[in-house]
Amino acid sequence: MEKKVFEIKDVSYSCLGKFPALCGVNLEIKEKEKIALLGANGSGKSSLILILNGLAFPQKGEIRFMGERLTEESLEDEEFNSFFRKTVGLVFQNSDIQLFSSTVWDEIAFGPTQLGISKAEVEERVNDLLEMLDMHSLKDRSPYQLSGGEKKKVAIASTLAVNPDILLLDEPTNGLDPRTQAFLMELLEELHRSGKTIITATHDLGKVEKMADRVIILGEDHTIVTEGCASEVLGNKSLLLEVNLIHEHLHRHDDGTLHSHEHGHFSEHEHNHNKYKTV
C-alpha cells in the first residue's frame, strides 16, 4: 500500500469569492499514481490543480499534503515551503505566465536556484534538460521569441529542473505538434516508471488512456462526477456526453444517410465509413 500524498476533504472554492469553481470535492491521491483530471472548460480542473500546488486555498474544507495541512500559514514556514516546492511541481496551462525570466536558460535555472541547489548542480540540470528537449539552440532566447509549442517545452523543462516527486500538469498537450505530443506522453510514462506521481488535467480524451491509470471526471456543476480506471470511465458514453466531454456529431453522407456518432472535442476525427464522404 503506497502512502497518501494528498487528501482533499469536502473542498469548495470560488474564484474571487464569487465565481464557483469547486463544490464539495473529496479526493485522495497516493504516491506513484498516474491520474487524469477530466472535465469540460470551466469545470474547475485548473482550480483543483492550483489548490494541489498550494497556490489557491479553499474557502471550505481542507487539504492535507503528507498528512500536513496545506494553508497559507503553513506554507509561510520556510522549511515546509521549501520541502513542498521541491516535492510538487506544476506546469501551468498558460506558458506566458510561467515563463517570466529573461532567457530560456535563466528560466530553467530559476526553480532550482531559488531552492538553494548548488550552482554546479543547477548548471548540470539545465544542460541536461536542454539536451533532452533538444533546445540547446534556444537557450539564450527570451520567452517571447519562442513559438507556443517551444514555450510549453521550456515550461515543462523549468518544472522538471526542480525534480519534483509529484508532477502536476495543466493541459500540457495543448498547442504541441503531434510529434512533440507523442514525445511528451513517452516522457511522462518514463517519469512515472521512475517513481513519480503524475496528475494531468486535460479534456483530450484521445490521450487519457495513455496518460492515466485512474481518471477523475469533474462535471460542469464543479463536483466530481465519477472516478475509476481509465477504460471503465471512457467506456461510459452517456456519462461523457452528460459532462460535455463529447458531443453528438451529425453529418450527411453521399448516399444521403444521416450518420450520428460521438467524439471528443479535440481528438482527431477517426471515421471508419465504407464510403468516401463529403460533409
Binding site: 516546492r85 526553480g111 531559488q114
Partner: peptide, 14 residues
C-alpha cells in the same frame, strides 16, 4: 507561477 517554483521574498540569479 513564481511561488510554485520556490520563490520567496528574495531572488537568486546565477
Amino acid at each position: 507561477a513564481m511561488l510554485s517554483r520556490g520563490f520567496t521574498n528574495d531572488v537568486r540569479i546565477l
